[in-house]
Amino acid sequence: MKKNVLLVEDDPALRMVMREVLKDEFDVDEADNGDDGIHKGLSDTNDLIILDYHLPKKDGLQVIEAVKAAHPNVPVIVLTGFLNPDSEAQFNQLGASKIFPKPFNYRALLEVVRNLTLSASSPSEVTEVPVAPKPFVQPQLAPTETEMFADSLSTVAALAEKLEFLQSVTEKYWIEPSDISTIREAARCMENEIQSFYGKINNTLFDAGGFNSPLIRNTKKPHLSGNN
């Protein structure tokens, strides 16, 4: 019998990718916001929960706190693109089994899900205690530059996730009819993310007028030929 995995993620494209990765070995239920994540997470049918940090309505910290209060032994995997040391410490204190920074390797995620569901069904097995990461130094950037930098990292991470998924689909010996619609949807989501990112950058530059930021001014302009 397949184990039950609850996937709490607000990005529909990322949910689609992870569902495709997990569906052969697990029954996957989904929630796209923190409120639904708590509601479904309180069910005693979940063998494991995969949880995004940044969620609408309630964030990942609120979700894991509610779920662990009701089901302390259910493994929880946290996904995040941006995590500061305080939030990471809170997730670990609340009982997160694993934290995956985005972008992540889907095969590695599948392997961790396999191991954690097996460990949860074997009470005698000792759960590995996560090692606290080294603190990082936050770059000192102006507010506008910080927002641009965060948006660029978020966009690159989202694109990397979908490219890895597309690679896993196209590496198969044959393409199934259902794969075609999956590839098209992933490509559409990638296009939307790129358009959204550059839309934000354009708005920032226009609003600033004579934008004279060192971050932009010192950036090398791309060329059609030569070293890029």
Rank of each mutant, 00 (worst) to 15 (best):
M1T: 09
K3G: 11
N4V: 07
V5D: 03
D11P: 00
L14N: 12
L14E: 09
R15T: 13
M16K: 10
M16F: 08
V17R: 01
R19D: 09
L22P: 05
F26A: 09
E30R: 01
A31Q: 05
D32N: 13
G34M: 06
D36F: 05
I38K: 07
L42R: 13
N46Q: 07
N46F: 03
D47W: 04
D47A: 08
L48A: 08
I49D: 02
L51W: 02
Y53H: 15
H54W: 10
H54N: 14
K57L: 12
G60A: 07
L61H: 02
V63D: 04
I64N: 03
E65D: 11
A66P: 03
K68D: 03
A69T: 10
A69Y: 00
A70D: 06
P75I: 08
V76H: 04
V78C: 03
V78W: 05
G81E: 04
F82E: 14
P85I: 14
S87P: 00
E88V: 06
A89Y: 09
Q90D: 13
Q90A: 15
F91E: 06
N92S: 07
Q93P: 00
L94H: 02
S97A: 15
F100A: 08
P103W: 08
L110I: 02
L110S: 12
L116E: 14
T117H: 03
L118N: 11
A120W: 01
S122C: 11
S124T: 11
S124W: 10
E125W: 14
E125F: 11
V126S: 07
V126M: 08
V129P: 00
P133M: 06
F136V: 12
V137G: 02
V137M: 11
V137T: 15
P139D: 07
P139F: 03
Q140V: 13
Q140N: 14
E145F: 01
S152Q: 09
L153K: 10
S154N: 12
A157P: 06
L159Q: 14
A160S: 15
A160C: 10
K162R: 15
E164T: 13
E164H: 12
F165A: 15
K172R: 15
Y173M: 09
I175K: 05
S178T: 11
S178P: 00
S178F: 02
D179G: 01
D179K: 03
S181V: 09
S181C: 00
I183T: 11
A187D: 10
M190W: 03
M190A: 14
E193R: 14
I194M: 14
I194S: 09
I194Y: 08
Q195I: 04
S196Q: 14
G199K: 10
I201S: 06
N203K: 15
F206A: 15
A208W: 09
A208V: 05
G210N: 15
S213V: 09
L215A: 13
L215D: 05
L215S: 10
T219D: 02
S225L: 14
N227W: 08
